[in-house]
């Protein structure tokens, strides 16, 4: 399972802007731009799954909104504290978008 949700990140946004620029100057076709994005999906999914080791915890003062749709959770959290070892990041508000992590690696599995 390769998710497209990582396009909505700094890396994804900047790639899309870059492709847009090339498209605008007719240097690539929309189809090619599309292929690049699909490759981006694969690369980022794979890299995150294998190369990133950091663990963190967070607690939020309040769950403001939640939504579960199409197997995607969306949370709006308030007063959140992210912690990794001793480094703490505090923020007023965060939006978390999460696809189903269980689908990865067991495609077609009936296990939900």
């Amino acid at each position: 399972m390769t998710y497209q949700l990582y396009r909505n990140t700094t890396l994804g946004h900047t790639l899309q802007e870059s492709l847009d620029e090339l498209l605008r100057y007719d240097q690539i076709t929309p189809q090619l731009a599309c292929k690049v994005l699909l490759q981006f999906d694969k690369s980022i999914n794979a890299t995150l799954a294998t190369k990133v080791k950091s663990r963190l915890t967070f607690k939020a003062g309040k769950l403001n909104t939640y939504r579960f749709c199409d197997n995607v959770w969306t949370f709006m959290l308030n007063d959140v504290e992210f912690r990794e070892v001793q480094e703490i990041t505090k923020i007023d508000k965060v939006k978390i978008v999460a696809c189903d992590g269980k689908n990865v690696g067991e495609e077609g599995s009936s296990k939900k």
Binding site: Y3, L5, Y6, N8, T9, W73, V80, I91, K93, V94, K95, I96, V97, A98, C99, D100, G101, K102, V104
Partner: peptide, 10 residues
């Protein structure tokens, strides 16, 4: 410039 986390849920 809101804060966003994009991830997968377990």
């Amino acid at each position: 410039t809101d804060n966003i986390v994009v991830c997968q849920f377990e």
